[in-house]
Amino acid sequence: MRSLLYTTSLILSLAMAWSCQQEPELIVHESSYIPPLYTQLEYRDTGQIDYSAQEFRLSLPFIGDTYNYGWYDGPVTTAEGPAMQINIAHDTNWFVTYLFGFRFWADSEEESLWTAGHLKNMFEPGRVFLFGKGAGRVDISFAHEGRITHVDQRSRASYLEEPEGQLQIVSTEDYSYLHPIEGQVEGLLVHCSFEGKLGLYDPALTPVTEHFKTDAALTLKNGTAAFLVTYE
């Protein structure tokens, strides 16, 4: 019994000495997370010799000089069939300014659209989407310097009489994030590269863009992007 008392006393003394270590008055833990969404490219306007670089990247607002861009994805119904639209926009309390976009048309034979299985099949690594409208194609839209207004004045690949260019899927991965209101959101993160030409939209010619066609082209090169498509 006495040895029990001595042993307990020894353990108690050691434990007390160990637990009396000094602690900082305040432990601060800071973390931030920005999803790996971006689009970057080089473009050349008509009459321009050198290419200009453009990058859109999600960022923290009010920190640094970078703008806050939002990535918006969702299915749209078009005259050419169902498509998945990804838009990059600058969103303020008053205006949404569209800056860049991908519109991917689903393959015509697809039935269960925008499910995980469908999206993984549609964006299979190595697959090539030709620029243009319709099943299996992609239309790229871009508002370059001087055309960034609150009215959507993006140039589009489909504005060219003969769309020219392609987008290739490099890799995909499952991606999820915790939305504070909607809860866990799951989707497919798609990495791609693209190059080609966009029909240069000129609002002076017509304010209606629906059937707009042009020969004037904005040339894109070294385009890469990572975008998210959420599962239905």
Binding site: S32, Y33, I34, L37, S59, P61, W71, D91, L178
Partner: peptide, 17 residues
Amino acid sequence: NSAVEILDTRVLPEGSI
């Protein structure tokens, strides 16, 4: 007088923070 402060900032894909 033991304290902790946790600051977590997240930018979500749709641009909200």
